[in-house]
Write a protein that binds this DNA or RNA. Sequence first.
DNA 1: GTGAAAGCGCTAACAC
DNA 2: GTGTTAGCGCTTTCAC
Lengths: 328, 328
Amino acid sequence: MKDVAARAGVGLKTVSRVVNGEPGVTADTAERVQTAITALGFRRNDSARILRKGRTASVGLVLEDIADPFYSALSRAIEEVSRLHGSLLFTGSSDEDPEREEQLALAFCARRVDGLVIVPAAGADHRYLEPEIRAGIATVFIDRPPLGLDADTVLTANASGAREGTAHLIRQGHRRIAFLGDSPDIHTAAERERGYREAMADAGLPVHDSWVAMGPTGPERVGAALDAVLAGPTAATALFCGNNRVTVAAVRQLRALDRQVALVGFDDLEFADLLSPGLTVVAQDPAGIGRTAAQLLFARLDGHTGPGRRIELPAHLVMRGSGEIPPA
Amino acid sequence: MKDVAARAGVGLKTVSRVVNGEPGVTADTAERVQTAITALGFRRNDSARILRKGRTASVGLVLEDIADPFYSALSRAIEEVSRLHGSLLFTGSSDEDPEREEQLALAFCARRVDGLVIVPAAGADHRYLEPEIRAGIATVFIDRPPLGLDADTVLTANASGAREGTAHLIRQGHRRIAFLGDSPDIHTAAERERGYREAMADAGLPVHDSWVAMGPTGPERVGAALDAVLAGPTAATALFCGNNRVTVAAVRQLRALDRQVALVGFDDLEFADLLSPGLTVVAQDPAGIGRTAAQLLFARLDGHTGPGRRIELPAHLVMRGSGEIPPA
DNA sequence: GTGAAAGCGCTAACAC
DNA sequence: GTGTTAGCGCTTTCAC
């Protein structure tokens, strides 16, 4: 910038004015500065600008795994809103590891992002963010609520969604319904299990211990859980799957066993309508969650204050066949 | 930092040393500084650090759409390698718009990212990056080569993959094979079409004009193209789909038409094995592409110089049923 | 309309 | 071992 000023024969501040489109420069000088800029290939260094201005026009996003379609849809929505507000987006995957979540979030804070959007890792205690939030970093939690902190939060109505899905299976005549879920220390998993149990209770149905299998979403664990749930005298006649990965693993295992069992899954899947039968799901709105979260974030950055707001987005049942299979 | 120094009764540089774990500080002073740091809730401002050090420990990634599973897998791999090198990742989606690609890339450059990974948007001319690259920003292109620039590039062997997939259909006895592709101004689309034509030529088969339909990957366009390709006296008996979105749209349309037609798709899909018949695909390795690209990038940052390297990763055929349907 | 000086928070270079 | 000084590239303030 100094070089540009020298070459254009103007002061530093004038170059700054031109570069930032500020008023108070004659068209003539502006043009001279422009010429110097192109001649020298000058590009403003935003790092320096940031240092001076305080705001970095960037947002940090910490999620479990950007390769998961649920999170990548979320991410895209946040990116869109950020772009409208002139912000760039840092992204990082925690792999459900609280330590990594913290490292990422604090690294973003050290870069002085204006805001943070976090999908809490299982069991993470978010008090580590207190000083950062006090220091002015707007923070929104999505998909799962924070632990030990009051902050804006955007969630899916997990319990009522799961209840709706389970009730649907009950309406089809099922009495022995299994729930295959993610690890119970994950908020969404626990909430969905709760919704499942509520639906069963609503219908006056017992829940046999062997019907509820919570744990990692790897195909081996889910496959084994499925085998167990479908065996013995109290074998379930229908399955409720707690998230997209469980559903995929379960469908695959049912295919391997060559069994047709009623199934409703939480989370929609791109190919859900192309399976035979089509997959009945309780669909979330990842883009809606992301958009809403980003809007809350920028509202804070635009000056909104007050206690954390908690927004729940509905999940809705999409019938495609697998959930409408009657009991054997 | 000044405040910490004052409170600990030491010089600025000593605080800097402690914060960065540099040697030359007695355990005693270090502890005093630490105490002051926690008392004041001090966190190093990496923006300022960056301004001084020159390196920002960040990488910018520009791709078409982070919500697309192919790109999100890519993104995850790049993130992993970046993390190993202590770098954070900016991500931005261009939506196949060259102007947006340029805006994003230049915004990242203005933040002085150390490196740039770019999936070129269709038709983008990359000479806009010349000054940036000269200024030292390491740049790697993935999935598609740059235009008007020599730079590191990581591609899939698109033509040979498409040739292999088409040859597979020919081996099943098909003679009239259609190619449904993305817009021909997209490098991957053009290359895959080339591979398809080569395979047909290898087998001494003609390619009827009406069999090749290139264009947007929206379901309407693909559905209409499919209808056309399957109609009339020269109706194709098999389909080669040029990418994951085309494949999904085509499978959906075939389902709607209630027709079983042999189909091989470029790109693997999560549920490909669960369809009936299973989807035969020419699978790329998105994670491999991302990893390789990031490695090339950090090699440059670690001092590697020389002309742009071009790496092609193989695509391989995965047979699952849809590609093994014989002609009617 | 324009520019000089100070300073954002840090680190490099060199003193002591 | 520790501190001082200068300066990274920009914006802010205020004087002209």
